[in-house]
Write a protein that binds this DNA or RNA. Structure first.
Length: 419
RNA sequence: GUGGGUUUAGCUCAGUUGGUUAGAGUGCCAGGUUGUGGCCCUGGAGGUCGUGGGUUCGACUCCCAUAACUCACCCCA
């Protein structure tokens, strides 16, 4: 038997209403913030991610689904959404549209990695990107989208943490300070951290090894080395969040693993998603448009893991209502009744009444059982008697009450009653 | 790439120190005198016991390998 590939999942009819609910909520939210949906390709030229996400990142080095197409091009399934959106922004000349450009997306993304709780090889992301605004006001707006989203969904214990990782200028100063601090302890660090020391010293700060953790508290803080502009930006962000009453913590440990982030980075964290506590992460990427071949343009965005969001809703006990019960099932006996019933459900459906009738020539009892299990609100039984008299009995399945009705009146009745 | 746990019917699980034709509950289908669902009763379909080797007269059971699932490291959403 052929199974779904490792790390992929079917979203089944029994759970689809949950997905549709959060999708709808997200769209509505983005709409009210003035963000328009963009749909980008599932695959891009590999080079886009190498340049955009960063050649040294784990995502690019070992997690991409890369293949050669029949024309000899190197193609990669998108491991995230930002690079593709940036590409589209440049390619479609969005710089000449009214600024800022505000976009959102609802996509699948693909990463080849070992699966565990809250992490899959194909997963879903809601994302938002904004281009052209350099000041902290847009940072506040982006974060406020998420804050409002979680609030609307009823999520309580999902905390916001922010940090500033500075611009390339102040970061290089800080890197040197950090290396100075860690150098004497180098031999006491784990293997990973010794590698990070050269490649990305920022990551030394969020190592989980206890042997390494003990140095974190004494390490110089990036906050102390931010340049004046970055510091002002971060202060602007904080006061902007305060202004909207958005609660947050400053966590100097937030260091995003994608190369493009600058200045503002943030995460929404949960305790319920296993060790993949990050439901949502994002930040500013002021150098990315230029890196991808456009004119220098500031940008900021986030991506939210929809599977993780679902888990969080589940574990916080938030119930998403199931779709309403279908309206009418017409049970039939004999060919005449069946033909008549098919005309009737066709008419009812054209008025958006959820109606069904037997398609398997089953016994009356089997048809009634079906109607019960599928949750129909009403049933009516049609046989030769009803066809001749034009009258039947409409049964309310919730309480078993029966009422005489004329067949002609059912359509009107249900139009009013059901919708 | 590295570790731990798991794998028997669609689903949840039993299965004795290795011994006939591998079971239960639930779900599905049908019937309980051919015009009515829920409760109850009866019957049916559905399993190469994850896969491949090995030990044995004999393997769901013991050994080895492998895959998938799952949790964790790393990294990210």
């Amino acid at each position: 038997m052929i199974q779904a590939p490792k790390g992929t999942r079917d979203i089944l009819p029994s759970e689809i209403h949950k997905w549709q609910f959060v999708e709808k909520a997200f769209r509505k939210l983005c709409d009210s913030f003035g963000y328009k949906e963009i749909r980008i390709p599932v695959f891009e030229h590999t080079e886009l991610f190498q340049r955009g996400v960063g050649d040294t990142t784990d995502v690019v080095q070992k997690e991409m689904y890369t293949f050669q197409d029949k024309g000899g091009r190197s193609i990669t399934l998108r491991p995230e959404g930002t690079a593709g959106v940036v590409r589209s922004y440049i390619e479609n000349g969005m710089a000449s549209l009214p600024q800022p450009i505000k976009l959102f997306y609802d996509i699948t993304a693909y990463r080849y990695e070992n699966v565990q709780k809250g992490r899959y090889r194909e997963f879903h992301q809601f994302g938002v990107e904004a281009f052209g605004a350099a000041g902290p006001a847009i940072d506040v707006e982006i974060i406020s989208i998420l804050y409002m989203f979680f609030e609307r969904l009823g999520l309580k214990k999902t905390g916001l943490n922010i940090n500033s990782i500075g611009c390339p200028k102040c970061r290089s100063v800080y890197h040197e300070k950090l290396k100075e601090y860690y150098k004497p302890h180098l031999s006491e660090l784990c293997g990973n951290c010794r590698e990070r020391f050269d490649r990305n010293p920022l990551r030394l700060l969020d190592c989980k090894e206890t042997g390494c953790k003990r140095f974190v508290s004494g390490a110089p803080s990036l906050q102390d080395y931010l340049c004046d502009d970055c510091r002002a930006h971060f202060e602007g962000l904080k006061s902007g969040l305060d202004n909207l009453g958005i609660e947050y913590g400053v966590d100097p440990g937030i260091v995003r693993g994608l190369d493009y982030y600058t200045r503002t980075v943030f995460e929404f964290i949960s305790e319920n998603v296993g060790t993949q506590g990050t439901i949502c992460g994002g930040g500013r990427y002021d150098g990315l448009v230029e890196t991808c071949g456009g004119t220098p343009t500031p940008g900021i965005g986030f991506a939210l893991g929809v599977e993780r969001l679902m888990m969080e809703l589940e574990s916080q006990g938030i119930v998403i209502e199931e779709p309403p019960a279908p309206d009418l099932y017409i049970a039939t006996m004999g060919q005449k009744a069946s033909d008549f019933a098919q005309q009737m459900v066709y008419k009812l459906r054209s008025c958006n009444v959820g109606a069904e009738t037997d398609l398997m020539s089953r016994s009356l009892k089997a048809q009634m059982k079906y109607a019960d299990k599928k949750g129909f609100s009403y049933t009516i039984v049609l046989g030769d008697n009803e066809i001749e008299s034009g009258k039947g009995v409409l049964k309310d399945m919730r309480n078993g009450e029966q009422k005489d009705v004329s067949l002609d009146s059912i359509l009107d009745r249900l139009k009013n009653q059901c919708k």
